[in-house]
Lab assay of single mutants.
Amino acid sequence: NQASVVANTLIPINTALTLVMMRSEVVTPVGIPAEDIPRLVSMTVNRAVPLGTTLMPDMVKGYA
């Protein structure tokens, strides 16, 4: 099973992502692959992402 990116904290809308905000976890449904974490750093989220939420491609500006 592939690990996905999961919010390690509440990420407010329009926040630039940092490494400490994200962790990898095997979850269903599958979200952004964990190997993309380095690429996500400094990208911003377009909605509030609660703790434990899987990051989906449409949640990160410029990812999809």
Rank of each mutant, 00 (worst) to 15 (best):
G62Q: 10
I32Q: 00
T9A: 12
G31M: 02
S42N: 14
G52W: 04
R47A: 12
L10M: 14
M56P: 01
V27C: 05
V26W: 10
R39E: 04
Y63G: 03
G31A: 04
S42L: 13
M22K: 00
D36P: 00
S24H: 13
T18C: 04
A7S: 09
P57S: 13
M21S: 07
Y63P: 03
P50T: 10
N14I: 03
T44N: 06
I37D: 00
A3D: 13
A16R: 11
G52I: 03
V60D: 02
R47L: 08
L17M: 06
P12M: 11
R47T: 14
A64N: 15
N46D: 10
N8H: 08
L40P: 00
L19A: 07
N1T: 15
R47H: 14
D36F: 10
T53R: 14
I32P: 01
P29W: 03
M56H: 07
V30M: 13
T18H: 05
L17E: 00
N14R: 08
V41F: 06
I13Y: 11
T9Q: 10
P12A: 11
V27K: 12
S42T: 12
L51I: 13
A64L: 10
R39H: 14
R23A: 05
T18W: 03
V49N: 01
T54W: 02
M56T: 15
A16S: 13
R47W: 08
M59L: 06
M56E: 14
I11G: 00
A7P: 02
P38M: 09
L10W: 13
V6I: 13
A7W: 02
V49G: 01
M22D: 00
M21T: 03
T44C: 11
M21K: 04
A7G: 03
N1L: 14
L10T: 13
S4Q: 02
R47G: 05
T44I: 14
T9P: 01
R47K: 11
I32N: 01
A64S: 13
D36I: 06
P38T: 10
I11N: 02
R39W: 07
N8M: 11
V27A: 08
M22L: 09
L19W: 13
P38C: 07
L19G: 04
P29Q: 05
P50W: 09
G52C: 04
L51H: 13
I37S: 04
P29Y: 04
P29S: 06
A48M: 12
N14V: 03
V6W: 02
M56C: 09
Y63A: 04
V41R: 06
A16H: 15
V26Q: 12
N1R: 03
V6P: 01
V6L: 13
V30E: 15
S42P: 00
A16N: 06
T18A: 09
T28P: 00
E25D: 14
V49W: 03
G62N: 11
M56A: 07
M21D: 04
M43H: 08
V49T: 05
G62L: 11
A34I: 07
L17D: 01
L40H: 00
V6S: 02
G62T: 05
E25M: 07
E25V: 05
M56L: 13
R47V: 06
E35F: 06
L17W: 02
V41C: 05
P29N: 05
N8R: 09
A16K: 08
T9D: 09
L51A: 10
Q2R: 04
G31K: 02
T44L: 13
